[in-house]
């Protein structure tokens, strides 16, 4: 069994209790306008380009590119990244077997103690359901610490409940109470998400509900209160309201996408995602060249 992983972060202290190894899986059904991990959204590996690292050596232009250097149609084959010794081009995401991922997670077993362990994050980790479930089962079978899943909740209920058997703690995002607002901000309504939260709460699973608070988007007191009400209605504890992360713009540029949240903190997030996410993955019309393929130093 294999899946696409875009990062494995050891010594993580922000993804659950204790020292954790956070496994970030690619692919997400939502397109949140503030998403600070845009490289997690698409399932397939993709090219990331950092122009400030480009020395203009031109080596990337010498490879056999299957799309003739048309960044908009890049298939993430990685040939140009392989020859980029300056690290300006790299491929985000690689296919790994569950055994490979577990081997990486297992390395920090001496540091997990009673509370640490593996966290599956993303993207939406259960978007690659079979792979994620395999990882959870293997970790449970080996008793590798405690297992945490960070989920957006937008997935088939049976997937969520099947995973819950192997999860000690869920971080469950509820991004807006108002269905229309939720759709505008994430590209999807919240009916499935709220339904899944209720179903999961019904199993007695340990859940911490989190809500990213985005200025100008979902920070109206009435909206936040509505989120609180939904959560308390399921008998769950306090909602953790998280501050927004304004540092994601560079990542979108690196992926050749526009930053849907605009200029960052404090701005009004008027842009909205569409349900296909197409607006986020298409080419950008930018006055500044972003693919660095001309062979000329910038």
């Amino acid at each position: 069994m294999s899946g696409v992983v875009f990062d494995i972060a050891g010594f993580s202290l922000r993804d659950g209790p204790g020292i954790r190894t956070a496994v970030f899986l690619k692919g997400c059904p939502l397109r949140c306008v503030w998403c600070h991990n845009p490289e997690s959204q698409n399932l397939a590996p993709e090219l990331f380009f950092e122009p400030e690292k480009c020395a203009g050596c031109g080596k990337c232009r010498t490879v056999d590119c299957p799309v003739n250097f048309d960044r908009a149609n890049c298939v993430g084959c990685g040939r140009c990244a392989a020859v980029c010794v300056y690290g300006a081009r790299r491929i985000i995401g690689r296919r790994m077997t569950a055994a490979e991922v577990l081997a990486a997670v297992r390395r920090d077993v001496p540091f997990y103690g009673a509370s640490g362990g593996m966290t599956l994050s993303g993207g939406e980790p259960l978007f690659q359901f079979d792979f994620a479930l395999e990882l959870l089962k293997l970790a449970a079978a080996e008793k590798i610490g405690t297992t945490v899943v960070e989920t957006c909740g937008e997935l088939p209920t049976e997937h969520l409940l099947a995973a819950a058997e192997y999860v000690e703690l869920f971080y469950f995002d509820l991004k807006a109470a108002d269905p229309g607002l939720h759709r505008r901000l994430t590209g999807r309504g919240n009916r499935t998400i709220i339904g899944n939260l209720e179903a999961l709460a019904g199993t007695g699973a340990r859940i911490k509900v989190r809500c990213p608070v985005i200025p100008g988007c979902n920070d109206a007191p009435a909206e936040l209160e509505a989120v609180r009400r939904i959560v308390s209605g399921f008998g769950l504890g306090a909602v953790e309201f998280l501050p927004s992360n304004p540092a994601a713009a560079a990542k979108y540029a690196g992926l050749n996408r526009s930053y849907p949240a605009g200029s960052g903190r404090g701005s009004t997030f008027s842009g909205a995602a569409d349900s296909s996410g197409a607006a986020l993955t298409g080419p950008v019309s930018s006055p500044k060249r972003t693919d660095g393929s001309s062979g000329t130093p910038e």
Partner: peptide
């Protein structure tokens, strides 16, 4: 920045334990 994360001291304890164990 670790000072601002959850129970950072508990994590450092595990780091120390791991160091000793290994």
């Amino acid at each position: 920045g670790i000072r601002g994360t959850g129970d950072a001291a508990a994590a450092v304890v595990e780091l120390l334990r791991g160091f000793i164990k290994l």
